[in-house]
Every structure is written in structure tokens, then in C-alpha cells.
Simulated scan of single mutants.
Amino acid sequence: MEVQDIEVMQSSFAKIYARKAELAERFYAHLFALLPEVEQLFDGDFAKQKEMFASMLTYCLKGVANNQSLAHTGASLAKTHARYGLGAQETEMAGRAVMAALQDVLGDELSPEQVAVWKQAIQGVMQLIQAEGHADLETQS
């Protein structure tokens, strides 16, 4: 990411952080609408899952200025989710769910520039998850 993109993301950090619980709620609503079959994977402590989503979102926000942290986040997410065998479609849908949640919760509070940069960042994280997932599968073969 370019320096100005990072600054644009950071300018929205406080708004997003303040509403991270609501973002987690909306993310899962969108995820289950897009991929209803994954809802069965969340039969345990769903409150804890939402908390973990909010924590990972916070980690991503804080690490956005450091591309290595973002890569580490993608690798960590890929390892955490590897057991689910997520493919390109699932990671793309998860990215869409994150963007839809941001739109639901923050709507007009995000500028078009912020929306574009967030979309780019979310796509980047999803690509990292996909790449790491493939790398893990290759090392297991």
C-alpha cells in the first residue's frame, strides 16, 4: 500500500474501532447470507467468535502501516481457517461480507476514498489468506 492509502485507512480507524462489535455482528450476518453452509461451523461459543473477529480487525487496523504485520495477519488467518478448506470463492465472499459490514455500520461516515482503500486492503488480506492456504496444502502433500 502507498503511504497516502495508509493515511486514509488510519483516518477511519477511530470510527471503525468504536463500532467493532457491531461490525462483527454485521459481518457474520452477511457471511451467512452469502455462504449459508458455513453457519454450521459456528455452533460453539458464537459470542467468543465475534470477539475474535473484532480482535483480528483491531490487529489489522493497528498493523496496517506495517506491510509485514498485514502479511503476518493474512498468514495467521490462513492457518486458523486452513482446517475448513476455504477456497477462492469462500475467501472472496468473506471479503464481500467485511465490506458490506463496513457499509452497513459506517455508511456515509466513510468517504469514497476510504471505502476504496478499505476494499483494496480487504482484498489484499483475502489474497494472503488464499495464498497461505495453498502454501499450507502444498507443504502437507
Rank of each mutant, 00 (worst) to 15 (best):
A131S: 15
L61K: 07
Q40D: 06
A33L: 02
A65D: 11
K48W: 10
L86E: 03
T139A: 13
A21Q: 07
K15E: 08
F42N: 06
A33G: 03
R26L: 05
S111V: 05
E2F: 07
H30D: 02
E22Y: 00
A29F: 03
W118V: 04
K79N: 12
D5V: 09
S55G: 11
E92D: 12
P112Q: 08
G124E: 06
S69L: 07
A94P: 03
A75N: 14
I122W: 07
A94F: 05
A88Q: 11
M56F: 11
P36C: 04
T80M: 12
N66W: 05
L35M: 12
S12F: 10
E90A: 10
Q103M: 09
G133P: 01
E39N: 09
A116G: 13
A65K: 13
A21L: 06
A100Q: 07
Q4M: 06
I122D: 04
P112E: 15
R96K: 11
I16M: 15
I122F: 03
Q103Y: 04
M126V: 08
V115M: 14
Q49F: 03
T139M: 09
E132K: 11
Q103G: 03
K15G: 12
K20P: 02
H72K: 11
E90H: 14
T139H: 15
V98R: 00
D136G: 08
K15D: 10
P112S: 07
Q68H: 15
R26N: 04
L110N: 04
Y28M: 01
A135P: 01
Q140D: 11
Q140E: 12
S76F: 07
G74P: 05
L102M: 09
A101K: 00
Q4G: 02
V105Y: 00
Q10L: 11
I129A: 11
K62R: 12
N66K: 14
Y28I: 04
S111E: 10
V125Y: 06
L106K: 05
A121R: 05
I6C: 10
Q140N: 06
Q4T: 14
M52P: 01
S111G: 15
V64W: 13
E51N: 06
V105S: 00
S55E: 13
E109R: 12
L128Q: 15
T91S: 13
K79W: 02
L77W: 01
L41T: 11
E92P: 00
L102D: 02
A97F: 04
A135C: 01
V125K: 00
M126Q: 09
G74I: 04
K79Y: 06
A29G: 06
V125F: 05
Y59W: 10
R96E: 09
D43H: 15
K48Q: 08
E37A: 08
V115K: 14
A21I: 06
Q4A: 15
V98Q: 06
K20H: 09
I122C: 08
L70W: 01
A135Q: 11
A29D: 15
V105C: 06
V38W: 03
Y59Q: 07
N67Q: 12
